[in-house]
Design a protein around this nucleic acid. Sequence first.
DNA 1: GTGCTTATTATGTATAGACATATTATCCGA
DNA 2: TCGGATAATATGTCTATACATAATAAGCAC
Lengths: 233, 233
Amino acid sequence: MPSETSFGWQDARDEALRRIRARDWPPGELIPNEADLAAEWGCARATVNRALRDLAEAGLLERRRKGGTRVVLTPLRKATLEIPVIRQEVVARGATHGYALIDRAPGPGPAEVCRRMGLAAGTGLLRVRALHLSDGAPHVYEDRWLNPAAVPAVLDLDLARVDANSWLVQNVAFTRGDLALGAVAADAAIADALRCAPGSAVFAMERITWTADQAITLVTQHYAPGYRMKTSF
Amino acid sequence: MPSETSFGWQDARDEALRRIRARDWPPGELIPNEADLAAEWGCARATVNRALRDLAEAGLLERRRKGGTRVVLTPLRKATLEIPVIRQEVVARGATHGYALIDRAPGPGPAEVCRRMGLAAGTGLLRVRALHLSDGAPHVYEDRWLNPAAVPAVLDLDLARVDANSWLVQNVAFTRGDLALGAVAADAAIADALRCAPGSAVFAMERITWTADQAITLVTQHYAPGYRMKTSF
DNA sequence: GTGCTTATTATGTATAGACATATTATCCGA
DNA sequence: TCGGATAATATGTCTATACATAATAAGCAC
């Protein structure tokens, strides 16, 4: 990027950011339009556009055609958290990843599970419970429901050798997902798998992934007590 | 956007996405360069550039100057979660927000807290414990350390009337923050505030916010049992 | 071959100009 | 005054062109 030569879009973004922070452009107020800013900063309107678009994506500005651009009243910050593929996450930490299948059971899904997956009650699903280890210690216990109608191949998968998590990521293209985070008290199954006391506070991440309105899988991953998911914003 | 008339950047993105999903462009492989795609799709290179840049930001493509663009091996999905301002979050749900200050205590911060905030051990901080209510029921218990050196005004704030969360968002421009999510067992203070049994599994969000290398606040928010933080990706 | 310099190449960015589109403001008639 | 048509306007996007930059490949001296 021409840093010395010209006023680039990052310079424009930084300057706009500075004005927002300095209350030079107060919260809730309109800021000058792109053409004026471009003239003031000596750059093209497209440059200003990109800068302001970037700040709008970050949640600091609100832009409307004809309405102009205004500073958002209460900047709702957004953090992006990477949805971990357990194996990768463990290996990336320099630890060794272990995996053990606990249970694999085809059969009709419970009403609640089918409902959440947008399926008729009693649809045939594949339930898989498994444990991920990090350096030999229990790390994540996952309880998963797979939809064979969406991914027939899972029925032939050797889930004792490959974990569903890794396999799905590499073999199924999903379009979107819903995610819920929370804390649960470890029940017997969880406590047993993670080798912690029943009732322990466990961090849980539930996901449903979809490919064009068809649910692929619903999974709840329970992390060993003490785990913290970190990110920045 | 000219939807019928010309091939816009969203069209380009969708087509690229289709090819990725269809394994038309297999994982790990190079894709044609921007100029070729522009020629193929009958649009300008800038249009292709914006489309591919968008997919790269989404984590589906990897781009390098001269190296070209390749499909990422294991698409690490990213979810963006909005960092809630409790009051807003409650009100947005249509519930009434309540707030009660539990404790306000200036004094030297514990060594661990100071260390995490990048301050010398024993620095004077302001500790604030408070409870947020949703429709009268305990919702979030927050335990906060404020750095008066960064925000002197907090010492004169009437924290019995305004909650630090809302006040900070509207009055202090921070540049970045670190965030950690986890589950903890409710200790006496938490259980008492949230009116739940001691030892209950509680969802906890810890944040440190910074403004140019100076820590503003370190806060841990404990959500009432059963709370789930939701988002999509 | 090793290490250096020099091309080559794909992406990154800036620009002016043009048109599209959403929204607001204005005007006018009933 | 109300409602609807119309003008005005700020952002959204596309284009063609140009140059910058990073990273690789090629060439070359030793």
